[in-house]
Nucleic acid binder design. Structure first.
Lengths: 157, 157
DNA sequence: TTTTTGCCCATGTTATCCCATGTTCGCCCA
DNA sequence: TGGGCGAACATGGGATAACATGGGCAAAAA
């Protein structure tokens, strides 16, 4: 713990969903979240993939700030954005063993089984079913590898 | 210690991975890292070679700043990059004897044995299995030699 | 009542802190 | 210009705290 929090969520780690629908948030993630608000995490269903997205209060706060600066309300585009961020998210409290209870419909929509995988992406993190994530990981790694190769090429000739 | 830190990671040095999966980061590297954030190093699996890459908080911070300015938080724009940099990296804390615990999957993917080699490359450094690095070193030296020759040619036609 | 939710305790595992020791490097003085 | 001497460094190992996870119990909801 230290300046770590500013760097956001990083790394990939495994966890487990117990029969009560609880998951233990990885300790490093909890430290990031704790720096934003105590015992709180926002979780929503990802829009494009069978996974969940978690983030801290800071993201919500930033959105609200932007909201008050610009058009307050009454624009359809904005409402859609607000819906995506606020309506689809649930504010979950982290108990003192570091776990949260995931709503059943979230578990269903992300197709989670007992083994889950946490994926750090800076200001947000993802929760996947471990089996399902395996191939996604392959694909993403391949894409990253291609990008890295492309850079090698660009530099050399 | 001096102005050296600003020059980034330099040189090649050996180290050892103990039975607990710990490595001692070479002191010169630690000094570079300390200038960016205290007791922190980011390590990731290299994309194109069986090795690990280490770097300081500055690299990550720079990426996150860019991310939050454009606010592409929930867009897929930088996803590949974010995955490569943030997901594949682990934030490791350096204990007060200068060591970090490398995750087992990192050790496996870089095929590390007891003897490891640190390779300074400016803003990042690499961690190789010493035996595996031997031939890579050959190849790189040869490539560097070729490049040097090519430049000679270009200058004196 | 039956079910669910939040709270608490229990436990095995893992990592982290701390102390100890050998070694190498740099520095200063003869 | 060599020793030699002290500090910084690298490495091993054991104790301790943090972590992940299962299960029980009681209050609240259905």
């Amino acid at each position: 713990m230290g300046v770590l929090e500013s760097a956001g969520f990083t790394g990939i780690s495994g966890g487990s969903l117990d029969r009560k629908g609880r998951v233990c948030i990885p300790a490093p993630y909890r430290h990031v979240l704790a720096a934003q608000s105590p015992n709180l995490v926002y979780v929503r269903q990802a829009l494009l993939t069978p996974s969940l997205e978690g983030f801290g209060a800071q993201v919500v706060q930033k959105f609200l700030d932007a909201q008050s600066e610009n058009d307050p309300f009454f624009t359809a585009a904005h409402d859609t954005e607000a819906f995506a961020l606020l309506s689809l998210s649930q504010e979950l409290t982290i108990d003192d063993t570091g776990r949260v209870r995931l709503p059943d419909d979230f578990i269903a929509s992300a197709r989670l089984n007992e083994a889950v995988t946490f994926v750090g992406l800076g200001r947000k993190f993802e929760i996947w079913d471990s089996t399902g994530f395996a191939e996604v990981r392959e694909a993403r790694t391949a894409a990253a590898r291609e990008q890295a190769k492309a850079r090698e090429q660009a530099r050399k000739p």
